[in-house]
Write a protein that binds this DNA or RNA. Sequence first.
DNA 1: CTTTAGCTTTACGCGCCGGTAGAATGGCTA
DNA 2: TAGCCATTCTACCGGCGCGTAAAGCTAAAG
Lengths: 258, 258
Amino acid sequence: MVQGRPRVNDGRRDRPAILTAEPIAIRTEMPSNRPKAGAQILPLPARERSAASPWRASRERLHDREVKRDAVIRAAARAFNRKGYHNTSLDDIAAALEVTKPTVYYYVSNKEQLLFECFVAGIEGIRAAFREARALEAPARERLKAVLRRYGAAVASEFGWCMVRAEDQDLSPDMSAHIKAMKSEIDQGIRRLLREGVQDGSIHPCDPKMTAFALAGSLNWIAHWYRESQSMTGAEIAEAFIAVFESGLEPRPQISSE
Amino acid sequence: MVQGRPRVNDGRRDRPAILTAEPIAIRTEMPSNRPKAGAQILPLPARERSAASPWRASRERLHDREVKRDAVIRAAARAFNRKGYHNTSLDDIAAALEVTKPTVYYYVSNKEQLLFECFVAGIEGIRAAFREARALEAPARERLKAVLRRYGAAVASEFGWCMVRAEDQDLSPDMSAHIKAMKSEIDQGIRRLLREGVQDGSIHPCDPKMTAFALAGSLNWIAHWYRESQSMTGAEIAEAFIAVFESGLEPRPQISSE
DNA sequence: CTTTAGCTTTACGCGCCGGTAGAATGGCTA
DNA sequence: TAGCCATTCTACCGGCGCGTAAAGCTAAAG
């Protein structure tokens, strides 16, 4: 408003543009026109260009794009986690990546989608847990415990907040419906394990619905209080909770099966 | 912007202004200048005015003010509950009361305070539960159960959402500190009951901290899924959860103490 | 009748933020 | 060299929503 409008870049665009999160670790720098250091002999072998498909290069770029997109979503997750969805602006997310807002929009179509992607990333871990547990040869209670451990880890992950606290009201009806479906899938999975446990005798007879609510609730709640760099990992917390759930509060005549 | 500015009220202000929530049921209508129906002999006896303190009337008014303020807070709680804090505008709250926004501001200073008041209203029930439980002559496990029942009821109440999901990031530092202190008080209360239970033998030895997290978490989570007009009340849900917590998942050699 | 005090309204200011237009940059291909 | 395409930038718009100024209405007090 106050300053004139330098339409043409006047040479002070030297901000390093990083768009990757640590765990990905490839650190593709976004191109910036800082002075090239020498002839810039690219250290990576040129990967037999010309030979093989000419699309190879563009496929490479596509991979890059995927990586950067992931970084955007991760950055969003971290920001949501720290400040909440509504208190996070897209400028915040862009700033965390040392990039400007339109760049973010180049990778995702809007804020809502960002939240949705974070949710999906978070819940995928839990779905995987169910798949693995299904393959396990063990009584249902053991399989349930395996799921709950991974569940706890997922909730304590950087996507935990998004997975657990994404609110219907912040999403368009159809995205909300997707999320609801996935949540329901998880819930049904737990109930199923409970029922199977009651049947195979590894779990004390109980109301599967309410028990599932109780179990999932206590684990979900972790997202409200857990902060990284705490002394325990998510899986450890889940382990502690499982101990409570298994034996209950009532003093038991010692069974001491261990 | 488009229309002229009718500075003077032009007679179409016939909107009935109600500022009370059902449970309060006094239904004091805010004054509005709709055509008076006849001579408007006020049906309430004039309450021996002139006699007694001349301040009687203004005290009466003060009471009214309290009632209306409560109605504002209740309306806010319901709106937050339904649409979330950030998706609720003060215009929404005002509209729910059939009043305009500045009227709301006449009773509370800002949106943040509204959230805070809802939180306090919600948590007060739990604090009361602790006070009552303390007076109880019973083993700690029973006292704990009594608290948890009321806890569940509170979380499922209309203030449950606010109590449980008020986020630090939405509040000024000092209000956030207040809330944190109250939450901590509750947490410590549960841990204390657990410790006492372990000592008096009514509770199986456990880690009070993690156990408290597990119990409170599952109950808190009720606020995420419970909607009124569900088949169960909050206390009933708590009861079901308690059943899980007490005996645990492991199949038990029948104790059948009932 | 006049004044005062309590309550409510109309009308508006203003900052923040989601989202976009369009230009610039630079590597790759032809 | 010329041109294309992917990527990023600067600059901006529009609207929503919190909060306020100031005036109007009503009932009671003087």
